[in-house]
Structure formats: structure tokens, C-alpha cells
Design a protein around this nucleic acid. Structure first.
Length: 420
DNA sequence: TCTGGGGTCCTAGGACCC
DNA sequence: TCTGGGGTCCTAGGACCC
């Protein structure tokens, strides 16, 4: 009988900062993204004062009631070191484990003899004592159930950090109240779709005909349902799979409008991508360069990406050369399209949301929008802008590459300042 | 209503995860 | 002024082939 455990670090990045600096342990702590832009991890106290994942730091720091909050810039090499340490400690007690992310790993608990709850508490104690990281453990007959158990262990203090869902009657009772969106593999979109059909809890979801689930949610949903029904479909994978892509992407704190600044940035991303390739012992045979303007400020935004087959390499100079070659035409086009987008917004007097006009069923608005579009294309060239459901954009794709990428290097998701 | 059938390969887009 | 970064998998649909 399969038996899985899932152990993960509580507020992992924050716990790492607190492990490093004990003075932070009784404070609300957040860890910030690149450029200290937004919150990517919150300690329990930070969650308690209402800080949400992704909250922009520049807004939080202005609120007087949050003046106690300590913010740390992210330090991924530090977190990686502690993560390896935690996995080492666990490996000393569990023969088969599958690290799943930087802060969590699945455990094969089937071979454990004796009291399983005591064993899980022992693991927690070892990690807390040696690595100074607090953890929670979920236990169940499938990975998905173990994930759900882990979540419950976190949200219910009376469980003391370990939640055991081996017993079917316990699960059935819990599924009555467990929101389907809480389940591993069910995201916001799917939860919305299910809610529209009156499916809100795991219990509701398990009542659905599996064929209907398959139709609605593809094999992914079918698998989730089976796993929740105690049919384990996701075995433990002991070998880390080969990387399929490597990405180096950054946004800037300020709009970048100078070509040489952008060129240098992309060169440094290509350099970093080369380092990662060599670390993994890989060559890239396809490269993608992405670039977009700030999508948050209400202006029409520009987004573009270009992929090309390249001669398999992990050489820095070659990667930089390819990246710059791809970047250059997109950079020039970005200015043109941004200007065109702004002109369109002015012409249709749509304020900051011209994209919401396309497509529209209102014939008057539609006609006005199309007339504006014609005017813009008259100025900037045919087909500069075309109506799309998701926004004003122009895709630039080389259709010549008909070979399958073996490994992809994506270099640069770049914020270009809109040029007026 | 019927329109050949069965493949492969590739891309774009969507959804999800941490 | 200031809004993350790095991944995976699945599907639909087009091009192409015999």
C-alpha cells in the first residue's frame, strides 16, 4: 500500500532569514522580489497583519500600522543552501524521497514501522533543531491527499504540525468542507469553472462522473479526482528529470528607454543563462527572447517574443550574439507599437483601457474602434495593430524553424519603457 | 448527410505549480 | 517613481506526408 508524506518549510524564505538572524524571529517578516518590488514570502506574523502574496512593497511601507514589518531582499543562494541542508537531514531518516520544490519534498512512508505520528514529529524536530526551519507534514495514500493533509497541518494549530489522512472516514468528513480550489492541481480558473456548475467542495467534486471530469478538465482533472479517491496515479520519482528549459528574466525598477542599457541587460541575462546551462551540463538549441512594456500602468502595452533555432551551444559569446540579434528588431518595433497604441487610445477616447474595446458586440463602439484602428495603421503602416481579445499586440514570429527544440534557453523578459 | 484516414511534427495558448 | 521569477504539462489546430 502506497503511503506518502509531504514535508515543507513554513514560510520558507522568511524562515531562512529568521534562521540566519534570530533577532527576526518574533517580528513580522517579508521577503521581496527582484528590485524589492513585491512580497514573495510572509512570516506567520506578516500574514496575520494582512499582507498578501504579491503586495507591492512601496504601498505597504507607506502604511503606518505596518511600520513593524521587516522586509528582506531575496537571497536565493542562501535559501538554496538551507534547502539542501534540510533534504540531507530528511535523507538520513527516509530512504526514498522526491524533492518537489525548494522547500518541500515527498517522502515514502510505507517502510516506516512503529508510530507514524511520532516518526513525523521526529523529522520535524530534527529539521528544526539542525537547520532552524519549522515544518509541517501531511500524510496520505496518494500525493494529492498528502498535499491536502500538509495544508491542513498548516492551517490548524491543534494538529501540532502533522496531519494524518490515512483513514478514509476522516477524509470523507474533511472533504465536506474542503474547498476544491484548495486542492493541488486545481487553480483559480478551474475552481471558477467548477463553481459555475455548483461544485465547491472536494465532496462535490468526487460526486462528479469521471467521464465528465475528463471532458471538462482533461487528464489533469481526471488524475486529481482519482488521487483524491485514493487511487495513487503519481508515483514517487527518485530521479530529478532533465531540465527542459532555462530562463533568465528580469523586470526593471525604472522604464528602460535607452538601447545600450537594454543591450547590456540582455547580454548579462544571456551570460547567466550560459552559466546555468553549463551547471546542468546542457546545450541550448533554441533561444527565445521576450520583451514587454509595463502592463500595470494602464497604458497600452507592448509584448513580443521571438524564438529561433540556434546551433547547440552553451558558450557565452554565442548566446549573447544570438540574443542581441533577436532583441534588436523587437526593440525598434516596441517603440513603434507603443506609439501606435497610445494614438489609438487617444483616438477612441478610451482612457487607459483601449484594449477592452476589442472585440466588442456594440456596433457603434466597434465601428469607432475600427475607424481608429484604420487611422493608426494609416500612420504607422498596415497591420501595425490588430484587434485581439487580450490586448493590442503584434506578434513577430519567425516561421522558418521547423525543428523541435531539445533544450530551450529563454533570455530576458524585459520591461521596455513606452516611448512617447 | 455525405466530403479518406491515419500518422508526425510543430506552435500557440492556457493552466497550474512554488 | 515603485507591481517576481522560474518551471511543467496538456490541448487544439495547422502543415505536411503517404
Amino acid at each position: 500500500m502506497a503511503l506518502y508524506g509531504l514535508i515543507d518549510g513554513n514560510s520558507f524564505y522568511c524562515s531562512c532569514e529568521q534562521a540566519f538572524d534570530p533577532a527576526l524571529r518574533d517580528k513580522p517578516v517579508v521577503v521581496l522580489s527582484n528590485n524589492d518590488g513585491c512580497v514573495i514570502a510572509r512570516s506567520a506574523l506578516a500574514k496575520a497583519v494582512g499582507i498578501k502574496m504579491g503586495d507591492p512593497w512601496h504601498l505597504i511601507r507607506r502604511r503606518p500600522e505596518l511600520s513593524e514589518v521587516v522586509a528582506k531582499s531575496s537571497n536565493y543562494s542562501h535559501y538554496g543552501d538551507l534547502s539542501r541542508r534540510v533534504f540531507e537531514i530528511l535523507g538520513a531518516h527516509v530512504q526514498r524521497l522526491e524533492p518537489y520544490s525548494i522547500d518541500e519534498t515527498f517522502l515514502d512512508l510505507a517502510p516506516v514501522t512503529g508510530d507514524l505520528m511520532e516518526f513525523c514529529q521526529m523529522l520535524r524536530g530534527a529539521v528544526r533543531q539542525i537547520a532552524k526551519i519549522p515544518t509541517c507534514v501531511g500524510v496520505g495514500p496518494s500525493k494529492t491527499i498528502a498535499k491536502a493533509a500538509n495544508k491542513l497541518a498548516k492551517s490548524r494549530p491543534e494538529l501540532n504540525g502533522v496531519c494524518d489522512l490515512r483513514d478514509e472516514a476522516t477524509r470523507v468528513a474533511l472533504y465536506q468542507d474542503l474547498g476544491i480550489g484548495e486542492v493541488w492541481g486545481i487553480g483559480g480558473k478551474t475552481a471558477e469553472k467548477l463553481a459555475a456548475r455548483g461544485v465547491r467542495t472536494v465532496a462535490d467534486f468526487l460526486r462528479l462522473d469521471p467521464r465528465k471530469v475528463r471532458d471538462m478538465m482533461s487528464v489533469v482533472g481526471a488524475r486529481v479526482q482519482a488521487e483524491l479517491r485514493d487511487v495513487s496515479c503519481l508515483p514517487l520519482s527518485l530521479m530529478a528529470p532533465q531540465r527542459k528549459g532555462i530562463a533568465v528574466t528580469r523586470s526593471f525598477g525604472m522604464p528602460i528607454t535607452d538601447w545600450w542599457t537594454m543591450r547590456e541587460a540582455v547580454a548579462s541575462y544571456a551570460t547567466r543563462a550560459g552559466e546555468k546551462l553549463r551547471e546542468h551540463g546542457l546545450l541550448a538549441s533554441t533561444m527565445t527572447v521576450l520583451l514587454h512594456t509595463n502592463p500595470h500602468n494602464g497604458d497600452p502595452w507592448y509584448s513580443n517574443q521571438h524564438s529561433a533555432r540556434i546551433e547547440a551551444t552553451n558558450d557565452t559569446t554565442s548566446l549573447i550574439g544570438e540574443a542581441i540579434r533577436m532583441l534588436e528588431p523587437m526593440w525598434r518595433a516596441g517603440f513603434r507599437y507603443s506609439k501606435a497604441g497610445i494614438m489609438l487610445g487617444e483616438l477612441i477616447d478610451a482612457g487607459s483601457q483601449p484594449m477592452s474595446l476589442f472585440p466588442t458586440k456594440d456596433p457603434v463602439r466597434s465601428a469607432r474602434a475600427m475607424a481608429a484602428l484604420d487611422a493608426v495603421n494609416g500612420r504607422f503602416g498596415r497591420d501595425t495593430l490588430r484587434p485581439l481579445a487580450t490586448g493590442i499586440s503584434r506578434t513577430w514570429t519567425a516561421k522558418a524553424m521547423n525543428l523541435s527544440p531539445r533544450y530551450t534557453t529563454r533570455v530576458g523578459e524585459i520591461l521596455v519603457g513606452t516611448a512617447y
